[in-house]
Amino acid sequence: MAGEPINEAEALGRLRQSEDPSMQYYGAWWLGRNRSQHPDAVPLLIEALKQRRPRDPGAGVEENAVARNAARALGKLAPAAHAAVPELLDALADPDDGLREAAARALGDLRAREAVAPICTRLAGGPAVAGARQTSCPRLVEPCEALLEALGEIGVATPEVLAVIEPFSSHEWPLIRSAAARALLQLSGEARWAEPLLALLGDGQLHVRRAALMDLGAAGWRPAAEAISATLAENSLKLIALRGLVENGSGEPGEDALLAAMDALL
């Protein structure tokens, strides 16, 4: 991600050319990072998202790396990028699980209700199928964490959707359990789904505690405020989580108490 600082025109130009994928990769990232409002940004990112091909390990920068970054950038340009939903749904069926992951996150950012059915289909096999480990690498068959989180963000809380998510709350990986509990908490608002997240704040692994912090923040679960402040993790992450309680939550503790908790972590 190194390189000279560039401006919007330069980022658009890099994405528009097709000689050098690494330039496109950086251009796509720049447009998302800087929340570009330029009218060409979304159409160019959609074009970049279409630009994918089967994996070719010998090809240097992979074509799909550009498509993945384009998907991520489209999510960051929500809601303006709604025109990208059909192409993102297409990407959700791509053989590349990394691209499916980026597409799922973007569809969640875009609150794309059209994505709920295809995401549920991908998760339908449950932890033993969608959540099983791939034979060739330490990843799951489906990018479960991103798919579950997208369902929570999109917010369609039907019994069918809840039934698809619930089995993942006992997945063997803590990060998947955390993502499932987060989505269930967002969709149902039931306190019992906060319990596993609060328990994970005390996990022995820092990366698990970090994930639980982010998930409680995304769900805006205000009763977790004190537990968040007391978690053994960087203040930066606790501040992001508490911001989530302020912006996504309601009820007690109220805003003034949450802001005071944030002040204490600066």
């Binding site: 911001r243 302020v246 912006e247 805003e255 003034d256 802001l259 944030m262």
Partner: peptide
């Protein structure tokens, strides 16, 4: 743009 910053500044 950040709601939480606006709230803190208003306080």
């Amino acid at each position: 743009e950040a709601t939480v910053v606006r709230l803190r500044a208003a306080l």
